[in-house]
Design a protein around this nucleic acid. Structure first.
Lengths: 180, 180
DNA sequence: CAAACCATGTAAGCTGTTACATGATTTC
DNA sequence: GAAATCATGTAACAGCTTACATGGTTTG
């Protein structure tokens, strides 16, 4: 999986400029790339060289000119092929768990404070994701099934946050109850 | 967060060679680095230059000589400081969700097959993690609280898998029931 | 006798990030 | 008049991966 596929997907939804894509990446919950120029503009050129996208320059008065990219037939075939490919297991990068692994040197209050900070961090994430779901910008609604799929994508992210929150809550409670 | 902290943590547990660390990284559930030579040996040299670790060469007959690294006082202070630093929110890189985002072009069977493949992938992950927990190699047990902490670390990973599994299960069920 | 293990290291390359560069227009 | 938005691109660097290089020992 790489950013090429994500861009092809977005372009299959609607033609866009590099700048449009950048904003979508910045906002997106699932497309985890930062949306930096270097990657997006270079990838678009590459996709163009491979014949997977077309580009049309639109000159504008009183605005810089745009390059509007759209997906080609070949691009649609490539996208479909990728969508059908064997899924990868999710990657969890929880640096907090590594931090926690060596946290036995901390005092009782220090440890609880660390856990509470993590809890706060997740709570912020959760609210952010719930807001994104409500706003629902950059969500295609071409068929009822597509709407359902995107709803489940948001549910996945939110339930991951909720799961993490439950876990911290349990740990804080147990550390208070137990005599360790 | 970077690999330096993880290595300091491991060395605070016990002195090790680069090769030892490599194996721990390869096996570890939470320390997500691949454990490649380039990164480990270079980081050890860097930590040594910074005075955070000591190294002692042990010549062996009928075996290549080892460099046994151990953490210094300065290293312990650095580690403690890092453990107390503000935690980062977890990063979820679920490429499957991006794949799913453009999966409405698939037929009913194709979509269910895709979901079932993902389900299988997670099931394998879950079993793997449960086995790692049982084996419990590379787990320090210096105090009851440390044992509890490491137990909660494994619980975190396993509950993440379980949560993902529940989500796929629900989606497959709903797609069968609903008329979309 | 091949494969795997022990043990250290290097080279080349890919991915992704931050920051820089330009320049017009709109909003506060 | 400063800051943000629109719009495209480049340069330098950090992080991480695969593969290469060496060479002895143990296991199947």
């Amino acid at each position: 999986m790489n950013i090429k596929c994500a861009i092809l997907g977005l372009l299959s939804w609607k033609p866009s400029t590099g700048y449009d894509l950048k904003k979508i990446f910045e906002e997106s919950s699932i497309m985890y790339w930062s949306g930096n120029n270097n990657q997006i503009y270079k990838t678009l050129i590459q996709l163009h060289n491979d014949g997977l996208v077309d580009s049309e320059v639109q000159h504008q008065e009183s605005s810089p000119s745009k390059k509007i990219y759209s997906i080609t037939e070949k691009g649609l075939i490539e996208l479909r092929q990728w969508v059908l490919s064997t899924p990868e297991a999710p990657e969890f990068k929880k640096t907090f768990l590594i931090q926690l692994a060596w946290a036995d040197t901390l005092g009782k209050e220090e440890l609880d404070s660390l856990l509470s900070k993590y809890e706060e961090e997740i709570k912020i994430q959760l609210i952010l994701q719930q807001e994104k779901r409500k706003r629902g910008t950059h969500v295609p609604n071409r068929t009822p099934r597509e709407t359902y799929i995107w709803d489940m994508i948001f549910e996945n992210i939110i339930s991951s946050c909720q799961n993490e929150l439950d876990w911290v809550g349990k740990m804080r409670r147990e550390l208070k109850e137990k005599v360790l």
